[in-house]
Amino acid sequence: MVKNILKLLLTFSSVATCLYGINTFGNSMWPLIVIGLSGIVFISIFKRSIDKLAIIVCRIMGVVCIGAAVLLLVAGTIGGSFHLSKSNEVILLGLISMGTIGCLFFFVKLEEKFT
């Protein structure tokens, strides 16, 4: 039950962040890939056969989003003082939420089903 709630939260936060990024910065390949991976995570709520794949995708998304948030924070220091535009602040919050929720899946065990 908790795993499915985390999947929903990760799906909604990643889709919202990607759609905001597309709206603000324009369309590119990476937000579409993240939306596609979020689709896999969402479908895994209903199809148990891809649950293991979805957990691995969530973990990868979590690590990549934390890395991207750190890089965005480093980019904010260019020019001698820290500054992020309002749109980058929203993207940073989205990346932090996606990264936090995705990294929570490191505490979820991969279930082996022997049927």
Rank of each mutant, 00 (worst) to 15 (best):
K3I: 11
K3P: 01
N4H: 09
I5G: 00
L8H: 03
L10C: 10
L10N: 05
L10I: 15
T11N: 06
T11A: 14
F12R: 00
S14N: 13
S14K: 04
T17L: 13
T17S: 14
C18V: 00
C18D: 01
C18A: 15
C18L: 02
C18S: 15
L19I: 14
I22F: 07
G26Y: 04
G26T: 08
N27M: 12
W30T: 06
W30S: 03
L32A: 05
L32I: 11
I33K: 00
I33C: 02
I33P: 04
G36T: 02
S38E: 07
G39C: 13
V41G: 07
F42C: 07
F42K: 00
I43K: 02
I43T: 08
S44E: 06
I45V: 10
I45K: 11
I45M: 15
I45W: 11
F46S: 03
K47A: 03
R48L: 09
R48D: 13
I50N: 09
I50H: 10
K52Y: 07
L53R: 07
I56A: 11
I56Y: 12
I56S: 09
I56T: 05
I56K: 14
V57S: 04
V57G: 01
C58Y: 01
C58A: 13
I60L: 13
G62C: 10
V63D: 00
V64G: 01
C65I: 04
C65S: 15
I66F: 05
I66M: 08
G67W: 03
V70L: 14
A75S: 14
G76Q: 06
G76E: 03
G80V: 10
G80K: 11
S81T: 13
F82V: 02
H83K: 15
L84Q: 09
L84M: 09
L84N: 08
S85Y: 07
S85I: 04
S85V: 03
N88P: 02
E89I: 04
V90D: 00
I91L: 15
I91S: 12
L92C: 08
L95V: 06
I96Y: 06
I96F: 09
F106Y: 04
F106L: 03
F107L: 13
F107P: 01
V108M: 14
V108N: 11
K109R: 09
K109D: 15
L110C: 05
L110H: 07
E112C: 01
K113A: 15
T115L: 13
